[in-house]
């Protein structure tokens, strides 16, 4: 089975994603895509690690190219999150920007074909009024395009609102 979880910041996506994963047997893998940057991300990573502690998760640190991950049969995988995957390859230190939309979609779909169950966390980055720079506009567009493509391929799509899963596609598990 596969699940795409979307929603804004701090809406309970990670907590719910882990609950979903625990409903499937081991082996369970957590793909950590966040590249730590600054104190806040360390706090967030610490919180997420604590949540996974003693839950039978094996953590795979993979910040790019998630299609290279090899999995044993019948694996359940939690990938968190699409925004991090995009962040890690869309911009480089020299200020260059790359078109990564098709690449990320293809990588995630490859991962989906290898995992028995895949839970992917993404983010709703488009729902606000703001006069973005060209780079940020391109970033919002990329995440939006990836979300649409993944939602079309995934069986179940939920939006998390105040920790409550709202079914957008499929059925509530």
């Amino acid at each position: 089975m596969d699940f795409l979880l979307t929603g804004g910041a701090a809406c309970g996506k990670s907590t719910y994603a882990e609950k979903l994963v625990l409903g499937f047997p081991k082996p369970r893998f957590y793909v950590a895509a966040m590249r730590p940057y600054g104190e806040e991300s360390f706090i967030r990573i610490k919180r997420h690690r604590k949540m996974r502690a003693e839950k039978g998760f094996e953590t795979i640190e993979k910040q790019t190219d998630v299609d290279e991950i090899e999995l044993p049969p019948h694996s359940t995988v939690l990938l968190e999150c699409i925004c991090n995957l995009v962040d890690n390859v869309m911009f480089d230190d020299q200020g260059n920007m790359y078109d990564v939309t098709d690449r990320i979609i293809s990588e995630v779909l490859t991962l989906k074909s290898r995992a028995e169950n895949l839970i992917v966390v993404t983010n709703d980055v488009g729902s606000e009024y703001s006069d973005y720079s060209a780079g940020v506009k391109a970033y919002v567009q990329a995440i939006g395009d990836i979300n649409i493509a993944l939602a079309q391929s995934f069986e179940n799509v939920y939006e998390l609102v105040c920790g409550i899963p709202v079914v957008l596609k499929g059925e509530l598990r």
Binding site: D124, Y132, V136
Partner: peptide
């Protein structure tokens, strides 16, 4: 208000 959506 729901304030979590959008860019960081």
């Amino acid at each position: 208000d729901e304030v979590g959506s959008g860019i960081i």
